[in-house]
Design a protein around this nucleic acid. Structure first.
Lengths: 196, 196
DNA sequence: CCTACCGATCGGTAGG
DNA sequence: CCTACCGATCGGTAGG
């Protein structure tokens, strides 16, 4: 009988990936052993190799999975007819949505990518750079259209991405405010500031 | 002859700490071995123990050193007679100054603190929480004085601290803009936004 | 999916 | 500051 794959976590490999993301997020990639990971599934460490090829592969799948999600969304946002300001708002909202709904994977991609293998690492950095350059382009458009201030566009993007990527404290605050409240407040602050 | 200690990097322990910060920043705490660290000084690993007591002690000193710097500055800022808005601007400027002038230590404190020993970890988290609560208090004052918008104060602080703490990409951009430009742009964006 | 086990590497100690 | 070495743990393999 052939196994039916779908996008929900149900293959064994998906479960391994999900549990790996949780452990990598809590303890870090290097500090997580495959024995611990196997423990979360009630199996022995060598049995993991029926589902994966290496520990590095787990981090690879998590980091590039997240990176692809963001890149896909970015391209969809760029393709819309919205204004530059609205596009930036959409990006901020998506970052917060993702970290809210897919916390472990996003956190690991944001904090553990340095542990990727040498080859993966350079590909990941390139993808990040591409992402940032696309956002800078949006800002440039907004500045040409006189929608946005003539601040340094690189710094503007660094600030926005740094703010949305670094929301590590979120988990403990998750009960304090809803997704919408977080999105609305952060979009308002990053676009229009906090001073009256 | 007694050794004369001063605040500049010149005792052997200071050199160990400085080199440790560089390695921890580049590779992560767990991924850095004491043998590598010893290599940077041209000595063998066991010789490190003439200057330190454990690997954990290195991370402890880095993280709490940075945390104390920020806490000291925060108290100085709070003690001034400046407005709430100006106080927040001062905090943002200090964060950027520190990450600019003391990059390795600040980066490690921001990204590797989860690897602290259990006891250190809870103390560090408490100190962070205290810091955030103090900043929230400043925001509340600004809101009461009608200087600041009535956005969620916790989210405002999370956003500001996330933005200044996550400036990891800074090192590669260090030649692209000066400290003052980075400070001015980020203060303007975080306080007044990027939309005209 | 298991048991048995490997070579490598780790933080750290003993003793000088 | 060194050499010699330790027990523990790691990612991963062999073989069933």
């Amino acid at each position: 009988m052939a196994k039916i794959k779908n996008n929900i976590n149900n293959t064994k490999k998906d479960i391994v990936l999900k549990n790996a993301a949780i452990l990598f997020r809590k303890k870090g990639f290097k500090a997580t052993s495959l024995r611990e990971l196997a423990d979360t599934m009630g199996i022995e460490a060598p049995s993991l190799y029926n589902h994966i090829n290496s520990k590095a592969e787990l981090l690879h799948n998590i980091c590039f999975g997240v990176a692809n999600d963001f890149m896909t969304n970015l391209q969809a946002v760029i393709a819309t007819k919205e204004s530059a300001v609205e596009k930036i708002a959409m990006l901020i909202r998506f970052h917060i949505l993702k970290i809210y709904s897919d916390f472990d994977n996003v956190f690991v991609a944001n904090h553990e990518w340095k542990q990727l293998s040498k080859k993966d690492l350079s590909a990941f950095i390139t993808q990040r750079k591409d992402y940032e350059n696309c956002v800078i382009e949006i800002i440039h458009t907004g500045q040409k259209n006189k929608q946005m201030k003539l601040l340094n566009a690189k710094i503007m993007v660094l600030t926005i991405l740094s703010a949305v990527r670094g929301l590590e404290i979120l988990q403990s605050h998750k009960n304090n405010f809803s997704l919408e409240e977080l999105q609305d407040n952060m979009v308002e602050q990053l676009l229009n500031g906090i001073v009256k």
